Simulated scan of single mutants.
Amino acid sequence: MSYDPPRPAGRLLLTPEDKEAPARTRRLRRLGLGERPEPALDAFADRLAELTGAPYAMVNFPDAEGQFLAGLHTPAGGSAARGGKPELGRRLPREYGYCPHVVVRRKALVLEDVGDYPRFAGNPVVDEYGIRSYLGAPLIDTTGMVLGTVCVAALAPRTWGKAGLETIKATAADLVVRLETRAAPP
């Protein structure tokens, strides 16, 4: 058994290594995903935000280069609605946010208050966008590949509870079926 010394982490943030990224990128390209915004995925994110009451909702397809938010819902009302923080864009570096953890873990992640977790509290999305709460689930297709995530985030700590966890997992399962069905030959 080998020992890998810890990498310098600055504020304890350690983004996990994603060994499946190259294969995921190929799978996403075969499905026609991960390279451009998708109106249907934006609508999906809008419904997810409404369902959970979260100001942010995303369908995220990470690849070897970073993360791409093919579906995105952000707060209305400009920077005032975000506490003066900048608008979230479609592309993010890999170390931003919590979706890379969901992808590598292959299971849902609930962070009711990211400040309660030193590993997650130093994430750049906390300082740059004001994210304080996160709920996400993996999009696992029928081949067993994690295509990405569906997630919601809030600007204040939030109790997602069992209902929130069940909702995010169910919406992820529903979306995977839709993505694979749309890519199936007629």
Rank of each mutant, 00 (worst) to 15 (best):
S2F: 12
Y3K: 09
D4A: 15
P5F: 06
R7Q: 14
A9W: 00
G10L: 11
G10V: 08
R11M: 12
T15A: 02
E17V: 14
E17Y: 13
D18R: 07
D18K: 01
K19W: 09
E20F: 11
E20D: 15
P22L: 11
A23Q: 14
R29I: 12
G32C: 08
L33I: 07
F44P: 04
R47S: 13
T52Y: 09
P55S: 04
Y56K: 00
N60F: 01
A64S: 13
E65G: 07
Q67S: 05
F68I: 06
P75N: 01
A81T: 08
G83R: 04
G83T: 06
P86E: 04
L88G: 04
L92T: 10
L92H: 08
G97P: 10
G97H: 08
G97E: 11
V102F: 06
E112F: 03
V114F: 08
D116P: 01
P118Y: 01
R119C: 04
A121I: 03
D127P: 00
Y129H: 13
I131A: 03
R132L: 02
Y134L: 00
L135E: 08
L135D: 08
D141P: 05
G144M: 05
M145V: 10
L147G: 01
T149I: 01
D174T: 15
L175R: 06
V177R: 15
A183C: 12
